[in-house]
């Protein structure tokens, strides 16, 4: 049983005489214990889709099933009970300004009718978990953005949810805080076996924490798959443009010694070891790195390098072939841009 199943979700907004088709038949499955990313440019419909999971947004068409319960069929009261088991955090935290940190975290417990003494113990536990022990009596206005998001995370976890929804949860935070919050989420996810669905427009966020990713464009999922697969061989234009955000334009990379310019992308085992050097040695060619990064996706090594390859044309092709056999994607640049030269 999947943790979350979305079946042909459509969402149409009526504004006066105009109707906006925000979601056009999205079908998704998120398995238990997965960190699932939904990425896309703004306006792609990713937040709307996320909000359909707990029915903050009711789909015009389609069914939503979370933990085996078909939410779209439930009456209001039963839906409220199920929502209590789905945590959610937001870009702007949405804490109660008039309540202390402890009361904010206790809020869902209060809604559920948990006894005060029991709630207090749970709040202490949760604040410890998110690294805010001792902040019980502070007010949200006294906290930094990262601390506010930690409070929101503690609040979202109060009722032992099986699913956590994150709506651009790190988009209002600086890069260091973003990293700290993502690491916290990942840590909590592993410890509690949570299923996390994360909406973001930043590839770096997906890269750090997600197991699987769906790419959205114009209200549709245009690409979906395991993270390494999507990172190494993106099939859709939108995915490519998201990945290439920090790559140089083809016409900005100039070969310095008249060689062939190529982009080599690989992940996992293929990205381990001195693979460029081996490719060159096997084919008696040489290479220069023009641009690139060696990084990781989730906990797999990941390389994305723009190189200039030098040698006999046939040997250079041989080197690219060697790399492909190893599992790398190799795109060669010609006058029109990057292309898979196979």
């Amino acid at each position: 049983m999947s943790a979350i199943e979305l079946e042909s979700i459509h969402k149409v907004y009526q504004t006066g005489r105009q109707s906006v088709h925000a979601l056009r038949g999205v079908t998704l499955r998120v398995e238990e214990g997965q960190v699932y990313g939904i990425i896309g440019q703004s306006g792609a419909g990713k937040s709307t889709l996320l909000r359909c999971i707990n029915l903050l947004e009711r789909p015009t068409e389609g069914t939503v099933t979370v933990a085996g319960k078909r939410l779209t069929d439930l009456p209001a009261r039963a839906l409220q009970r199920e929502r209590a088991r789905i945590g959610m955090i937001f870009q702007h935290f949405h804490l109660l300004q008039s309540a202390t940190v402890a009361d904010n975290v206790a809020f869902p417990l209060r809604l559920a009718g948990v006894a005060r003494r029991q709630a207090r113990a749970r709040v202490g536990e949760l604040l410890e978990l998110v690294g805010l022990g001792g902040y019980e009596h502070k007010y949200p206005t006294q906290l930094s953005g990262g601390q506010k998001q930690r409070v929101a995370i503690a609040r979202a976890l109060a009722n032992h949810p099986s699913v956590l929804l994150c709506d651009e949860a790190t988009s209002a935070l600086d890069p260091n805080t973003t990293r700290a919050i993502l690491d916290l989420l990942l840590d909590i996810q592993r410890r509690l076996g949570l299923t996390i669905v994360m909406v973001t427009h930043e590839m770096a966020v997906v890269q750090r924490v997600c197991d699987r990713v769906a790419v959205m464009d114009h209200g549709q999922v245009v690409e979906e798959g395991p993270l390494t697969e999507v990172f190494v061989s993106p099939r859709h234009e939108v995915t490519r443009s998201l990945l290439e955000a920090d790559d140089p334009e083809p016409d900005q990379v100039r070969p310095r010694s008249g060689g062939t310019v190529a982009r080599i992308v690989c992940a996992g085992a293929a990205a381990e070891g001195p693979f460029l050097k081996e490719a060159a040695a096997h084919t008696s060619t040489q290479f220069t790195i023009l641009h690139g990064k060696v990084d990781s996706v989730k906990d797999q090594p990941y390389a994305r390098l723009t190189v200039e390859w030098l040698g006999e044309p046939a040997h250079v092709q041989g080197a690219f072939q060697w790399l492909r056999e190893r599992g790398c994607r190799v795109d060669v640049r010609d006058e029109e841009g990057w292309r898979d030269a196979r």
Partner: peptide, 11 residues
């Protein structure tokens, strides 16, 4: 947003 967060918590 705060109202929405409360809704999401099942209020």
């Amino acid at each position: 947003g705060v109202i929405e967060a409360a809704q999401a918590m099942g209020a």
